[in-house]
Design a protein around this nucleic acid. Structure first.
Lengths: 207, 207
DNA sequence: CAGCGTACTGTACAAATGTTCAGTCTGCAC
DNA sequence: GTGCAGACTGAACATTTGTACAGTACGCTG
């Protein structure tokens, strides 16, 4: 899925850049490094993308477009949940990742975009939020979710709680021993999240 | 509070480095830039810290030590909540930030440490998690929190949900219109978080 | 075949940057 | 006063890195 059949040198450069940017961050990657990974000369990188910034923009746009596609795919899953498809409680992030091959650099790149505080990341954040808000209002209307006095904040709350598992999964794996992005980690994590969101975390005083 | 009276050139260099690292990231800051901000020559930076990496380590250690102090202070607040001290629901992050001057670079630096996936950040993450886990178990034992089948994951869940507001507050402010690190943002955010954690988010089927 | 545009290479260059170092100044011990 | 250790400066150096460019190979069009 989403295996780009484009094997031109231009596409190879973009793909290599995507992987290296995701792994080390754009600032820590040199054009020579990208060229070597793509099997071309450094000059060709500039020939196709004008500058390093141009290449960064191209990769950003590519990932943003892919994100839109993934979003639509995840929405379809949401509307018609299959046998083992987790509900909304386990979050959209896992759903998105489920649409990608096992070691795709896309999640790591998305992580950088979301944390970078630049226009590309903010646009993705906005898309994600609008989607979450729509689902939240829909859930409240259908009775699946309890009403909230502040639906906008409620949607943001649910969204970034979900995002947090993607942003911090390495720390979680190292410290807690549960990586919420691995198959068994997902299960443990989702079970507790659903429990927390359903029965609540704090006990009311009059209980 | 925590205004270091150390005004030696050595301390000034560390302070300037801390601010610049927090704002732009260590890789994007040059030794010359730090020296200029501290009002010294570039050579002196190396004289005191040996190398740029040495300076980074020194800043990391300084922030880690400060984090320990802040943690203890926040725990004291937790044990004896004052008039307007929010409960555990609004999270530890806000409590920590409340112990710092308004425009302290510490939160931004902590953010970088936690997202960097290096030993210094992992140690802070670990301290934070151990604290959250202890409070969670204590809350369950006292009856203030509902029991969880998986206390470790429950503690991690609550912790990173809290962290997410700190990591993504800029995106939240730009897209949602609520910055959970500003005074009025805290109020709106905490109210909804407490509501979500108390009465739950999803409606059970038999209700 | 001739011409031309595009992909592509490898060299060269200028700027930035971490680091080294010789040397100066200052304060303190003897 | 003399000597010395440490703070501090400013110039210089080596390396890295983004980029420009001249030149080559190749495929398409006329």
């Amino acid at each position: 899925m989403f295996n780009d059949p484009d094997q031109t040198a231009r596409a190879n450069i973009r793909t290599s850049a995507l992987e290296l940017f995701a792994a080390k961050g754009p600032d820590a990657v040199t054009i020579r490094e990208i060229a070597a990974a793509a099997g071309v000369s450094p000059g060709l990188v500039l020939h196709h993308y004008g500058s390093k910034q141009g290449l960064r923009n191209a990769v950003d746009e590519y990932v943003a477009a892919l994100f839109e596609v993934l979003t639509k795919g995840s929405m379809a899953d949401m509307a018609a949940p299959g046998a083992d498809t987790p509900g909304v409680a386990s979050g959209f992030a896992e759903l998105l990742i489920g649409h990608l091959p096992p070691h795709s650099p896309i999640p790591a790149y998305l992580r950088r975009l979301l944390l970078a505080d630049d226009p590309a990341g903010r646009q993705i954040f906005r898309t994600w939020y609008n989607l979450t808000l729509a689902l939240t209002k829909q859930g409240i209307a259908s009775g699946a979710m309890r009403p909230s006095a502040d639906p906008e904040v409620r949607a943001a709350f649910l969204m970034i709680n979900d995002l947090a598992t993607m942003l911090l999964h390495k720390n979680l794996a190292a410290v807690v021993g549960v990586d919420p992005l691995t198959p068994d980690g997902i299960a443990r994590w989702a079970a507790d999240a659903i429990d927390a969101y359903s029965t609540g975390v704090f006990r009311l005083e009059n209980e």
